[in-house]
Write a protein that binds this DNA or RNA. Structure first.
Length: 491
RNA sequence: GGCCCCAUCGUCUAGCGGUCUAGGACGUCGCCCUUUCACGGCGAAAACACGGGUUCGAUUCCCGUUGGGGUCACCA
């Protein structure tokens, strides 16, 4: 039913040429349902680049009415704490990316990986290699010394004898040596690599544990993944992985390698570029829908559309329009988008978010102030900062610029305003009328009263409209704050 | 270094041979609105890396150069 809905929303026909071209014509009529997977490793945070890959993978599945699976690559036990795993799941939920079925854990499938390795040996597609790490290192260094590329040729590849008794061994794939391997990548297009470039990589370590290369292929197959959407740092791996798939005679998945996100200087996004984790952006006061929209537009486009809702994203997303070059992360644009979504956001929701940041406060008041506050913030922290004056306790902490506004002349004006205010009906228009009248009678511009008033009421030189401030604060508090500044002795 | 990939305003992108004196957005700079700051509105500057082809015609196709990126583990 989702599919039908999507087709109604879609404003233009889905091109999808690359997708349909890559599908087997004979099975096109009964096209297999799309199954994608997101496979992060628990590194302690959800990398913003991985999050985008996950987003693309999720959107592709949702667009095609397929399944989006989640697998945690936790084979590195040292790093795979429950806490690290929760960080990933939290980040995904926060972004609104759900997944179908249970969370898969790669570590749980280790017996199966070993089993496949054994089958590979039996099929003559893999072999036990008894080369020691020292021997490998020596060969590698020798190649380097001669400045020729190192390509392992293990004498155990075609050796039918059993190795030395009790000696440690690894299992290596008998990679094809002639010809070339071609991948029809949905993003990168046709990519070919000479098989001579591929060597006999390790499938099973000497301790019997599977390598990532083996595990990922087995899991993707067992989980029924049809479309592998991941960062293009894996493109080279794809050729090796395909060799395993072919050796096992399994259905070949379709690949889509998404370019990585770079920092503002064009280099791979790293810590020195600032925030890397999805949680960092959350803490910076970015709204999830803003990050969603930003990440979506980073490397993908849909005509001139900039503001794209979740529903539109699902309806519109395709791999054809994913760019092939890496894109740079632009905080300014994210902030701009975030400002937009803050202005769009529900006031009560924002009030709750702000309250989380400034402590136990009257969210009712906050929500009422929100329409004025939210136009002035690009992130939740700025929003919280802008709301501070509402809950400040008297006497106010007046900043330097605001204090400069409070001199003998302005105090005289303030006194007149104070009297007019005290007699006024406490609602926006009446207050404005009262203050304007004071200004007229004093022969000054409104600003000459409004600014000192702002300084007295908020302790700042910038704030929402002054009459809104008055209304929000209420008569008692407003008059008291003004009075505080009247008695202030000027030293 | 070998292999692979990429190349439109500062940034994200639209463009899939003529519609391009190249469109949108962020950022920047003006102006307007205005009690401040924002928001909003209007406007400006700003790009097809370079060189060869192919073609009647290239931003769009091909090759090369340059520049950038990725990857080369018993890590994932």
């Amino acid at each position: 039913m989702l599919g039908a809905l999507i087709h109604c929303i879609a404003p233009r026909p889905d091109k999808g040429t690359r997708l349909s071209a890559s599908q087997n014509p004979s099975s096109a009529a009964a096209a297999k349902p799309v199954v994608t997977r997101f496979a992060p490793s628990p590194t302690g945070f959800l990398h913003i680049g991985n999050a985008r890959t996950g987003l693309f993978s999720w959107l592709f599945a949702r667009h095609h009415g397929g399944q989006a699976l989640l697998r945690v690559e936790d084979t590195d036990k040292a790093r795979s704490t429950q806490e690290a795993i929760d960080v990933i799941l939290d980040g995904m939920r926060w972004l609104g990316l759900d997944w179908d079925g249970p969370v898969h854990f790669q570590s749980e499938y280790e017996p199966r990986h070993a089993e496949v390795a054994q089958q590979l040996i039996e099929r003559g597609a893999a072999y036990r290699c008894y080369l020691t790490p020292e021997e490998l290192k020596a060969r590698r260094e020798a190649a380097q010394a001669e400045r020729r590329p190192f390509r392992l040729t293990s004498e155990w590849r075609d050796c039918t004898d059993a190795g030395p008794e009790g000696a440690p061994s690894v299992v290596r794939l008998k990679a094809p040596r002639d010809g070339e391997t071609v991948i029809e990548d949905l993003v990168q297009g046709r990519v070919a690599v000479a098989n001579a470039e591929l060597d006999d990589f390790v499938l099973l370590r000497s301790d019997g544990s599977p390598t990532y290369m083996l595990a990922v292929v087995v899991d993707d197959h067992d989980m029924g993944v049809t479309h592998i959407i991941r960062g293009d740092d894996h493109l080279n791996n794809a050729f090796r992985q395909l060799a395993i798939v072919r050796a096992m005679g399994w259905d070949e998945p379709t690949y889509a390698h998404i370019p990585l996100i770079h920092g503002s200087d064009g280099a791979k996004l790293s810590k020195r570029h600032g925030a890397l984790g999805v949680h960092d952006y959350r803490d910076m006061g970015i709204l999830p829908e803003a990050l969603f929209n930003y990440l979506l537009r980073l490397g993908w486009g849909h005509g001139d559309d900039e503001i794209i809702s979740r529903e539109q994203a699902i309806a519109w997303f395709d791999l054809d329009h994913v760019g092939k070059s890496p894109s740079r992360f632009d905080m300014k644009k994210l902030e701009s988008l975030n400002g937009h979504y803050i202005r769009e956001a529900d006031d009560a929701r924002l009030a709750g978010l702000v309250a989380e940041r400034i402590g136990d406060v009257d969210t009712e008041l906050l929500a009422r102030a929100m329409p004025e506050l939210k136009a002035r913030a690009h992130d939740l922290n700025q929003l919280a900062e802008g709301a501070r004056f509402l809950f400040a306790t008297r006497p106010l902490d007046v900043d330097e610029q605001a204090a400069a506004l409070l001199n003998a002349d302005s105090r005289a004006l303030l006194r007149a305003a104070q009297q007019a205010l005290a007699a006024a009906n406490w609602e926006h228009d009446a207050l404005e009328q009262a203050v304007r009248t004071v200004a007229e009678e004093a022969g000054v511009k409104l600003g000459q009263i409004a600014q000192p008033l702002r300084a007295a009421l908020t302790g700042r030189t910038t704030s929402p409209g002054i009459f809104d401030v008055l209304v929000l604060l209420g008569q008692g508090e407003s008059l008291a704050r003004i009075a505080d500044q009247m008695v202030e002795p000027n030293a």
